[in-house]
Amino acid sequence: MNIEEIKSDLVKNIPGLELQSEGEFLIVPKEKLLQVARFLKENEKYRMDYVSCITGVDYLNKGYLESVNHLYSMEKKQGPVVLKVRVPRDNPRMPSLVPLYRGAEYQERESYDLLGIVYEGHPDLRRILMWDEFEGHPLRKDFVQEDQDIR
């Protein structure tokens, strides 16, 4: 299972999909994320039935937030396939993986809480670690703490 193989399988089976890869990672356009994940989950060859790690990274200088999803297969004991989705920092909306994987529920809530990525279609998108009244997203690189020295 190498990256080129996964890429060609995906492009063949999902019409209109434009994929890029960077090293071992696939960069998926956000509109196609659910389709790509569903294909990987249901296809006999991959069976990526387990989403291990969902998180986000704030690339301040490049101007986007990146959501990183590690998929593994428990059935076939293979993986990972890493799907990265890039969304603009001022409008960070992307589809939620919860309709496919329950395991995404808390991890997406955490990513929403700390990084401010809005997952559309999530059944219960609330803050999970910070309190409800908290403003801002602490893991963003331009977040300023109350007691922080501003340089």
């Binding site: 291990s52 790690c53 998180t55 990274v57 704030d58 990183v68 590690h70 329950r102 395991g103 529920e105 808390y106 991890q107 955490e110």
Partner: peptide
């Protein structure tokens, strides 16, 4: 999950905690 930008500090450092996700 670690992201390095080549500096002495990690650019991103994420923990995937088992007991947090097991609570789902």
């Amino acid at each position: 999950y670690l992201v390095s930008d080549g500096s002495p500090k990690p650019y991103r450092y994420h923990v995937r905690p088992p007991s947090f996700i097991n609570l789902t």
